[in-house]
Design a protein around this nucleic acid. Structure first.
Lengths: 136, 136
DNA sequence: GCTTGAGCTAGAGCCCGCTCTAGCTCATAT
DNA sequence: ATATGAGCTAGAGCGGGCTCTAGCTCAAGC
């Protein structure tokens, strides 16, 4: 099947601007086909790749990294070790990011518990007394 | 104890530029004290707060959100429900972010497994045959 | 024939969170 | 006395990733 850029945008949740931008940045593997009037025509495969990229972006992968991966894929078979290295590197980045997030999350959860407790006591005691400081 | 901005930077891993920037942006709770020559003098409490902020930033909290929280703390006790709401909102943001990361991570891990398998077979078979495509 | 809608390009603009620069003031060490 | 080092302010610049604009081309419908 063939799709116009607008349809692809609608399907993937990206803007048409973003799609054109990604193309300029070399994020797509096969060059997007154009029709008689110069308009982009996306295939199902193209959409699959766009969706893959969208998910990688959501996972915080920089456009640059996606472009590098696309470059390898574009060059065809033979560079599997390079692709694997790239993927592993980003696996680690994501894991590091998640670790940082979970530190932050547990800090916030801790504070949430404290405030919930204070509030519960507050409604019980009706008064705020001198609040425990400790960097709030 | 009292610390110069350089010491604080060294201890927290932030740059002196970033610290000054954060102050301008209202991220700090008490206004930072100045010495005779107009230089910032940080207390241990200040450092504690800076470290808290640093961790929140690492967890992806926007400066603006931290500033909002600092505003509430600065106003003193009485707005605990607001603080709690702010914290809960960011708890949810972090959870959402982690969910997105984990989707990306599992996609990448899946691909890593595929490439590892291909490579293992490759070293066994010495040849790359026609590779299974499926959007690489 | 004319409008409407989708698409095109090149390039400007924007937001965030710094980072860097210029030009200055102090305190201290030599 | 002067050189070094830390700090100061105001403001410019930057990188990433879009987003938006201007000015254009087409194709279809009325």
């Amino acid at each position: 099947m063939a799709y116009g850029i607008g349809e692809v945008a609608a399907r993937t949740g990206l803007s048409v601007h973003a799609l054109r931008f990604w193309e300029r940045e070399g994020v797509f593997v096969g060059p997007i086909v154009r029709d008689g009037g110069g308009r982009r025509v996306f295939s199902d495969d193209d959409i699959g790749w766009v969706e893959l990229c969208a998910r990688l972006r959501e996972a915080g992968m920089p456009l640059e990294a996606i472009r590098a991966y696309a470059d390898l894929v574009r060059q065809g078979p033979g560079n599997e070790p390079d692709r694997l290295a790239l993927l592993r590197a980003h696996q680690e980045r994501i894991e590091a990011r998640m670790a940082a997030l979970s530190v932050g999350l547990s800090m916030i959860s801790y504070k949430v518990r404290i405030y919930e407790k204070r509030l519960a006591e507050g409604t019980a005691a009706t008064l705020w007394a001198t609040p425990p400081a400790s960097n709030d």
